[in-house]
């Protein structure tokens, strides 16, 4: 096996699975652009159902990548989320890994080995 192929496989195995899941990646990407965002916006921007969004946010919170704040505005409950510095780092690391992988994996059209 070529070294570059081995590195590519190690790269794939080394990605952070908490971040890699597409819905969680979308949530982190949105949150990385703001100080905080309300649940309803995340639902709309990431195209997730309430249940899915809630479940993914809980996983990200358990992993220390986001902070969730629940409060009442008047009588209306409001949930908002913010990315933590660890979340920013995890997202940046994941993107760097992905970019490196894309550079290493040969394009099928070019006839990879």
């Amino acid at each position: 096996m070529k070294d570059s192929t081995r590195e590519a496989i190690d790269g794939v195995l080394g990605v952070d699975r908490l971040v890699h899941e597409p819905a969680r990646l979308a949530i982190l990407t949105v949150l990385s652009q703001a100080e905080h965002a309300e649940f309803s916006f995340l639902e709309m921007a990431c195209r997730l159902s309430k249940g899915n969004l809630s479940s993914h946010l809980s996983k990200l919170e358990a992993g220390g990548l986001v902070i969730i704040e629940k409060r009442f505005v008047g009588k209306r409950p409001q949930t908002r989320a913010a990315i933590t510095p660890a979340g920013q780092q995890a997202l940046a690391r994941y993107r760097a890994q992905l970019k490196a992988l894309m550079g290493e994996v040969p394009n099928n059209a070019d006839g990879g080995e």
């Binding site: 100080e35 905080h36 965002a37 649940f39 309803s40 639902e43 709309m44």
Partner: peptide
């Protein structure tokens, strides 16, 4: 109106 997002 789709949810508050505070600009960073």
């Amino acid at each position: 109106r789709d949810g508050r997002v505070l600009q960073a």
